[in-house]
């Protein structure tokens, strides 16, 4: 890190496409001034000048360096504003920050990806990145869930993913409200895990989603016989600076921004307390 670079300086990107994924989630396609290098699982601080910024993990493969895609849920002040922008708007960005997924440790392993809600965003990036080198892994199993069929994101891409040789995609929704259609499984995403026929001793899992989902998915994975060190959690936490200065994101003695956002379950001293 060059000491003369101001870490708070923002890059200006242009939003060239906006896809509505669900009633609360949109994907923003950002054209960067030059190729943007990042590692899947790393995050950026993206936002609008004069409004604010927040930590988001790109949802596109790290092999695609420009444009990059970010899926954002409308949940607070800044995200509400960014949901209202139009194509052509300048979106600020700094990063990439954090550790990302240790792909070298996934090599020749079966990779189980478990996600819920907007947690699918970093996992989509991971999945697409793994698919690029699919022969390096024993297999890829993806279990995605959402609250309702309408909340499931990346719906337009699911059929394409199902066609990928070596990738096994499972979907579920918690419930199907009246008026919505769903042909797949119903139940929380953990119900997808138990029937899986995979070599647990040679499996690593990547989990991301709402805290409650991450907790029960992790417990289910442990019950299945996965080692705590093989469970990779993408942790979310209050973050301002993204670079380990503001201290808001500390989880135990770790900075979620700098030491994470990807942690293995065995890293925590008091794992019951990490679920917010």
């Amino acid at each position: 890190m060059n000491a003369d670079t101001n870490v708070f300086k923002r890059l200006e990107t242009t939003c060239i496409d906006i896809k509505t994924e669900s009633p609360t989630i949109k994907t923003f396609v950002l054209q960067c001034p030059e190729d943007f290098e990042f590692k899947t699982g790393q995050f950026v601080e993206a936002g609008l000048m004069g409004v604010g910024e927040g930590p988001f993990t790109p949802s596109s493969s790290h092999y695609v360096k420009n444009p990059i895609e970010i899926s954002i849920m409308n949940v607070g002040y800044m995200t509400e504003k960014i949901h209202k922008i139009e194509e052509g708007t300048t979106v600020t960005m700094r990063g990439p920050y954090g550790n990302g997924y240790p792909l070298d440790k996934f090599e020749s392993k079966h990779v189980l990806i478990v996600g819920g809600g907007v947690g699918l965003a970093p996992l989509r990036s991971l999945m697409l990145t793994l698919v690029h080198d699919i022969e390096d892994y024993a297999g890829i199993t993806v279990c995605f869930g959402a609250r309702t069929p309408a909340d499931l994101i990346y719906k337009d891409q699911l059929d394409d993913w199902k066609q990928i040789n070596g990738l096994d995609l499972h979907l579920s929704v918690d419930q199907v409200p009246e008026g919505q259609e769903w042909k797949g499984k119903t139940g929380v995403v953990t119900t997808l895990l138990k029937p899986l026929d995979i070599d647990k001793k040679n499996t690593v899992a990547a989990v991301c989603g709402p805290p409650i989902m991450m907790k029960f998915a992790t417990l289910a994975l442990l019950e299945m016989g996965l080692d705590p060190s093989a469970i990779y959690l993408s942790m979310e936490s209050k973050m301002y600076c993204g670079v380990g200065l503001c201290r808001h994101c500390t989880i135990e003695h770790y900075f979620a921004c700098k030491d994470g956002p990807v942690f293995t379950y065995d890293q925590f001293e008091n794992p019951e307390a990490i679920w917010v």
């Binding site: 609008l48 000048m49 409004v51 604010g52 910024e53 301002y240 600076c241 503001c246 201290r247 808001h248």
Partner: peptide, 8 residues
């Protein structure tokens, strides 16, 4: 030394 950040 904790701080928060806002755009103004």
């Amino acid at each position: 030394y904790c701080f928060l950040m806002n755009d103004e």
